[in-house]
């Protein structure tokens, strides 16, 4: 039986606007299992990013709960959430969001550094991850010396280096050309299998959707479809 990594129960996020309350996430009940490669899809404004923020502990739900490995994170204090994110969740953002003043290797090491991992182990793992994403020749390059695709590969290496329980990727291929996007997806699929890391994407990108083993469609904040595929 597959192990549940994330479970949402009656998850809800309502934003109070001046006109009327906006229900960005509406009664979502989902379970994500270890090693899954899931795409969250849906039109703009369907609540994909809000949902990822809630399960990533970046935002607090207005109702329901998010349980990660049996821990309800929706009741955690902010300082606990910072620590929880640091130790359990990897993030990949649409705009890569690397630290511009650090080299590729330093960026990949950064989370491990915040986790206070031993220096040798950290450097070895950063080197290994950069090799895995095909950037062993760019370890000392700064983000502005890398292409968009290369920067996103560094971001993936950063997210995976500390071996988180799962990785959340918000539209990771949105800013990439086709070749870079395929390249990134190949790497992520391989790492998903090799490292058995749970990957959850929000995406519009058909190229990502076609690779996903599970596709969850959100419409107006609610789950309209939850499909699984053998890829």
């Amino acid at each position: 039986m597959m192990k549940t990594v994330i479970k949402t129960t009656n998850l809800e996020k309502v934003y109070n606007s001046s006109v009327a309350p906006v229900r960005a996430v509406n009664d979502v009940n989902l379970e994500f299992y270890e090693g899954e490669f899931t795409a969250i899809v849906g039109p703009s404004g369907s609540g994909k990013t809000t949902f990822l923020n809630l399960i990533g502990g970046l935002d607090k739900p207005t109702g329901g709960e998010v349980t990660i490995d049996g821990t309800d994170i929706s009741k955690m204090k902010e300082s606990q959430l910072f620590d929880f994110r640091l130790r359990n969740i990897g993030f990949v953002f649409q705009s890569y969001n690397l630290i511009p003043v650090l080299t590729a290797k330093e960026n990949v090491s950064f989370i491990m550094l915040l986790q206070k991992q031993p220096k040798d182990q950290m450097e070895k793992r950063a080197q290994e991850m950069l090799e895995q994403v095909g950037l062993s020749d760019k370890i000392n390059s700064r983000p502005n010396q890398l292409s968009g695709g290369q920067q996103q590969r560094v971001a993936v290496a950063r997210a995976l280096a500390s071996k988180p329980k799962f990785v959340l990727a918000d539209e990771p291929t949105a800013n990439l050309d086709t070749e870079s996007a395929f390249n990134l997806l190949d790497i992520m699929s391989r790492l998903n299998q090799e490292e058995n890391i749970t990957l959850i994407f929000s995406t519009h990108d058909q190229r990502v959707i076609e690779r996903a083993k599970r596709v969850i469609t959100l419409v107006d904040g609610a789950v309209s479809k939850d499909e699984k595929f053998e890829r």
Binding site: L58, S79, F82, R85, L86, F91, N97, I99, L114, R158
Partner: peptide, 16 residues
């Protein structure tokens, strides 16, 4: 703003 947000998202505490 964006960069500082990312630092906090990935777990860098506010005090840091």
């Amino acid at each position: 703003v964006n960069e500082l947000g990312v630092l906090m998202a990935i777990g860098m505490k506010r005090v840091k």
